[in-house]
Amino acid sequence: MNIVYNGEMDTRLFKNVLGQTISELLSEDENVVYLDADLMGCIGTAKLPKETNRAINCGIAEANMVGIACGMSAVGFKPIVHTFGPFASRRCYDQVFLSGGYAGNSITVIGTDPGVTATFNGGTHMPFEDVALYRALPGATIVDITDVPMLVDFLRQAKDLPGVKYIRVGRKASAQVYEEGSHFELGKGNVLREGRDAAVIACGIMVHEAMKAAQILSQDGIEAAVIDIFTIKPLDEALVKAYARKTGAIVTAENHNKIGGLYSAVKDVLDGEAKTGYVAVEDKFGEVGPQDYLQERFGLTAEHIVNTVKETLKRAGK
């Protein structure tokens, strides 16, 4: 897999890529059905061809939407549902859990605007706990999308995978990390940058911050590896353990509450191989504001990663 990261933001917006890819999947696979809860206009799917009866606007009723999607799975469809992250997790969690996972139905849930990317919709729309909820759902797959090539590839994979799949992705642009057309292996993290002193394990928007942090650290003589662990569940335990043993200092970086997310997942698999630190939202609710303000407010910046790596190295005696 080729890494093309140069620190610049992609000119494409996730929301347009979502709309385009969902449209393509509906055309290519007659068993794909797409359901939304009155947010088609937010991801460009309101412009889907009128002739399809497999793009269903369920209205503002997420629990019902998920139940309908699961029922359609039971009669042979591959449902993809979309709404904003808090409604794709908290609002319909019991339905995803029971009508989906427990009942053996397969469903792809796209939760847009995770964490601070909810910006001006504010605290009511800002999920810092969605990963924690989905991690507790037996057998669920959770992917925090890094860039456009990953979104396109994983959407195409997800429709055919059994079980509950949760995709958290923003609607704006991200820095492109991977070459166009890359294929991603679920449950396998990607090492974006090698380093012997510490390893930063990041997902979603924090991959970009981790790459920036590694450059700053390098200038200070600290070589930090950067791992994009886009599949939070199932976690690439072998890779986490390998870098824990190799560096003795692991720092996670996520756009999520420190409770129940990536940091928790990484801590779960480690058994004293390394000192650990985290860059995550402390146990707080979200609030309104531009994304750069919110990243600073909640400590989700490259600078915070740099400081946490240095502090972790100190504790590791390095």
């Binding site: 059905v33 139940g67 309908i68 029922g71 359609m72 799975s73 009669v75 469809f77 029971l98 009942a103």
Partner: peptide, 23 residues
């Protein structure tokens, strides 16, 4: 269909019927 958490079977049934109708 799996049921028991009350209310959930209603949406599931809608989805099954809608799916059959589309097919």
């Amino acid at each position: 269909m799996t049921t028991g958490s009350l209310g959930q079977g209603t949406s599931l049934a809608v989805g099954m019927a809608l799916g059959d109708k589309i097919k």
